[in-house]
Amino acid sequence: MGIWHDEVGIEELNEKNLGCLNETLGIEITEVTPTSLKGRMPVDARTIQPAGVLHGGASVAFAETLASWAGYLAVDRSRFHVVGQEINANHIRPVAPGNWVYGEATAANIGRRAHVWEVRLTNEAGKLVCISRCTLAVLEVPSAYATADQRG
């Protein structure tokens, strides 16, 4: 299990992605390793800018999604909820439509009240597209992450 509080299936995470921005952008969680969380996002009409390449805002939304899910997995969800507090991103290279961008969130620090996650986004060739750091606040309330029908 590594850094995770307990096991949560990828299917459960992706089910909770439905009915919100994560689904709108096509974000999918693909793997939980002992020390990281991985996902992917399509580069298409939902995620490009007017110049026809991956939008930096879509990259940031993808990075924060991965960091937030990683924080969610790292806490006791019956007692804690994580929320994004700060995020930054450096955009390195463009990605054209018809491709995927892949992300991996790894912990820089998992504290009692705050987490810092590094998220690296790469293209299909494995080249760095964006690097982001996201700080999450750890709130002492049960997690509010839910499926679309539970939210509704």
Rank of each mutant, 00 (worst) to 15 (best):
I92C: 09
G98P: 05
A61F: 02
T35F: 08
Y102H: 08
N99H: 15
N99Y: 14
K127M: 09
N14L: 01
L21F: 12
N88E: 14
F62H: 07
L25H: 00
Q150C: 01
P34G: 00
I10P: 02
R93E: 04
P34D: 06
I10H: 10
V138H: 07
I10C: 02
E124D: 07
N109Y: 14
A96Q: 15
P97W: 04
L128W: 11
C134I: 14
S132T: 10
D6W: 15
M41H: 09
R133D: 10
A51M: 15
P94E: 00
S78M: 11
H91L: 02
S68F: 05
I27C: 00
A107D: 02
M41E: 05
N88L: 10
F62I: 03
S132G: 11
L136N: 15
W117L: 00
N123H: 03
N17P: 10
L136W: 12
S36P: 07
G152S: 04
R151P: 01
E104F: 08
A144Q: 15
K38F: 02
G56F: 11
E64S: 04
R79A: 14
I87D: 15
Y102G: 03
I48T: 09
R113S: 11
L66E: 03
G71K: 06
C130T: 14
G2D: 08
D76Y: 09
Q49R: 14
F80V: 14
A45V: 15
G84K: 06
W100A: 01
M1Y: 08
S132A: 13
V43I: 05
V60K: 13
D149Q: 06
F62C: 00
E28I: 04
L66I: 06
E64T: 07
S68Y: 07
R46L: 00
P50L: 08
L66D: 05
G152M: 01
P34K: 03
V82D: 05
T30I: 03
R77T: 06
S59V: 05
Q150L: 01
T135R: 06
I92R: 14
R120A: 13
L18G: 02
C20T: 01
V138T: 03
R93L: 04
V82H: 06
A61M: 02
N22F: 08
E28M: 07
G98E: 00
W117I: 00
R46S: 01
E124G: 09
V75P: 05
N17W: 09
G2N: 10
V116S: 11
A137D: 15
L66Y: 09
C130R: 12
T33M: 09
E118S: 13
P97S: 00
L25V: 01
I29S: 12
I92F: 12
S59L: 09
F62V: 03
V101K: 13
V60E: 10
E140P: 13
Q85P: 11
V116A: 09
I110T: 15
V141N: 11
S132K: 12
I92P: 12
R151E: 00
E28C: 08
V53T: 14
N22D: 07
T135S: 05
G2R: 08
V43C: 02
N22G: 06
A89P: 12
A63G: 08
A107T: 02
